[in-house]
Design a protein around this nucleic acid. Structure first.
Lengths: 123, 123
DNA sequence: CAGTATCCAATCAGATACTG
DNA sequence: CAGTATCTGATTGGATACTG
């Protein structure tokens, strides 16, 4: 079984490298929600990213984990409990996402683009 | 012919919206190079993004243009000349890309990840 | 020079059903 | 609860050849 994460290809440059780590359909939102709530369980993440399937959620979480941006903590209980949170490296990206979010809000207003959810990308 | 740009889908939230505009394999580098050089012709962009095909370059440039991040200026000369540059909205993104680039550089050092090009993602 | 057109391969993503 | 497995469809990306 081949290793399947973002590291696979040698990045062209630092911009390329960084965009690979945070690119992808759900990574921004995932990191943002984890920032807002500090700790979230698998099911909670699933309910916050309403348009994600379990397959994509697991896949994306694994990539973020491999890339050292989030931490996965398993509690060996019945029923099982798994908690996700940002690592220190992941937290370094928060200001960036925060600014980008504000930029997005402003742009959506100016261009009159509707969005599905209201407020701060709430859970 | 269907309109084919990033607006097609209603964004879930502002984070989702912003990540769609700058996501994609080449957008970050394209914006970054245009920031560094102010004005670049099609062929120059093609030579800076060494791994891009003409198809993808045109496609990505059109998306950035539709999304109001870059401007395309055609000179009706022979041979033809087309110049690309950042719009005011596009320039708003430069600080983020700059930070992200620095973050990427730091991470690549700490994780000992090699990169193909050296320096400031130079042309 | 600045692209298009066409065809094909690879990757991404979704639906659905199932498991420790 | 927190995932996996499988199959299929959609989207993205690439090679190559050609054009105003």
């Amino acid at each position: 079984m081949a290793i399947k994460n973002t590291e696979e290809q040698v990045p062209i440059c630092a911009v390329d490298f960084a965009f690979r780590r945070i690119g992808g359909k759900y990574k921004g939102r995932l990191l943002w929600y984890l920032h807002l709530h500090k700790v979230l369980r698998y099911g909670e993440l699933r309910r916050s990213i309403t348009d994600i399937t379990p397959k994509m959620l697991t896949q994306t979480l694994r990539e973020l984990e491999d890339d050292l941006l989030i931490e996965r903590k398993v509690y060996h209980e019945v029923p099982p409990r798994v908690e996700y949170s940002l690592t220190e490296v992941g937290k370094e990206l928060v200001p960036f996402i925060e600014h980008l979010r504000m930029w997005g809000e402003q742009r959506m207003k100016k261009e009159n683009i509707p969005m599905i959810q209201q407020g701060k990308c709430a859970l």
